[in-house]
Nucleic acid binder design. Structure first.
Lengths: 239, 239
DNA sequence: CGTAGCTTTGAACAGGCTCAAACCGAGTGG
DNA sequence: CCACTCGGTTTGAGCCTGTTCAAAGCTACG
């Protein structure tokens, strides 16, 4: 299967053959991390960045009373800690939500890319900028939307992101994420996540049984979640 | 006065004279924006990025019922929309909270920098990565801290960021931000912001009269806000 | 001296939380 | 093949943090 990162980047701009080759060659090794294991820990100073090839992962922080906040949910094609290339010290941990297949890209290789491939460098930079745009969107949803709207918003986003890397079958995606994990993502309690999901089901906006999430009414779901996809930068442009 | 962006970047890594000159030369013009005016609007496709030389600015989004969420507060030396260089379309507006002096850096010049100055490119990239780290921290504070802790956290952050660009006098900084704006930043109502500030004052953690914010007890304030500064990347390292 | 914008106060209300227990389904061992 | 266990989901009831609405108090400025 082709590298899902290339799939992701090519959706935003053309990549030359040399650039694609450079990306493929950047992968030093591939490893598998089991569900519920840490991929990177807060405070680590990685010498390579992890690219998620398969599976689901989450960035998270723990606060004093043991509560957890998830600041990013990752799907195949996402870099989990590309920012550690320049930030050096991890300000959060990264957790495997399912079994994950992960490609390691050495920081030394990334540095070489920035020396030799300006456009590819911009594309990697773009990748981290999209992370930032998602963070801003989450901040807005968290601060100013109701729990139900926030959940609807997250579902819209995940559906589009999964679709963009070819992980949707029609209106259905596999979303192997527990209600507790959703709660930690949205800043809600597990109990309330459950009630909110029931509401979305009752309104016939989604079906969500087991891991299978089906969008029943995209139109209304985006309306409830006040969702527009601009921030995901799904447009192909010269960058 | 020297360019506060250079001050900011030199705190994180050495810059060569050529790099500094390239940064200085990147400024095409300087303009002044009055308080409460938009610097960039959501949906805009800027051809230059705005560097804040003086004043305070905020990134914000408006949601359907007219409520506003501020996703970033900016101090001198911050790029307000460096990300528009690669994201192309603004996913949020940027507002001047006070009179702002702003340097315009054309995207064409940024592209040239990425072609010719790999290390400077990494430093600009780093700049956007720090924005992202702050977003994550805010997400955590918003989702999992009490209103009081969240406010304490924000105050700690702003104090350090202002200090880092030489805008602190001892334990005091000028923070010309209204309680309504703080509310939109923290995702709280203005009324509650007021009560939370009173609590921090009563606890003798801060003084905040007019625009002057004084830290009375840094130790306890960081404890209340569960604040550690790692995410601000204030360390000088090879990047 | 008046006004406009910001801060402060009070009181009722509500959205989401906590605690506790039941339920459910898939895998596991006897 | 059935009982058991474990992780996750669902339900109920009371509570608490932060909201809303409305009005009064400040303060800087013209």
């Amino acid at each position: 299967m082709t590298n899902p990162l290339i799939l992701k980047l090519e959706q935003r701009d053309q990549l030359s053959d040399d650039e694609k080759k450079a990306l493929e060659n950047a992968i030093a090794r591939i490893r598998v991390v089991e569900a519920d294991e840490d991929i990177v820990r807060e405070g680590d100073r990685p010498t390579e960045s992890s690219l998620l090839l398969d599976g689901f992962a989450a960035r998270y922080k723990i606060v004093s009373n043991g509560r957890r906040q998830i600041s990013a949910l990752h799907v195949p094609g996402d870099f989990l800690d590309l920012h550690s290339f320049l930030l050096k010290t991890m300000d959060h941990g990264v957790l495997a939500l399912t079994t994950c297949r992960i490609a390691a890209v050495p920081h030394a290789t990334l540095e070489k890319i920035t020396d030799e491939f300006p456009h590819l460098t911009r594309m990697l930079w773009l990748n981290t900028l999209i992370d930032g745009a998602i963070h801003r969107e989450w901040l807005t949803a968290m601060g100013r939307l109701s729990a139900t709207a926030h959940m609807a918003h997250l579902i819209c986003e995940l559906f589009l992101r999964l679709k963009a890397v070819g992980r949707a079958e029609g209106d259905t995606v596999q979303l192997p994420v527990t209600q507790a994990e959703l709660g930690d993502t949205l800043g809600l309690s597990t109990v309330h996540v459950n009630r909110v999901l029931q509401e979305l089901r009752k309104e016939r906006l989604i079906r969500f049984q087991g891991d299978a999430l089906t969008i029943l009414d995209w139109e209304r779901l985006t309306k409830v979640g006040e969702f527009t996809s601009t921030y995901l930068s799904l447009q192909n442009e010269d960058r």
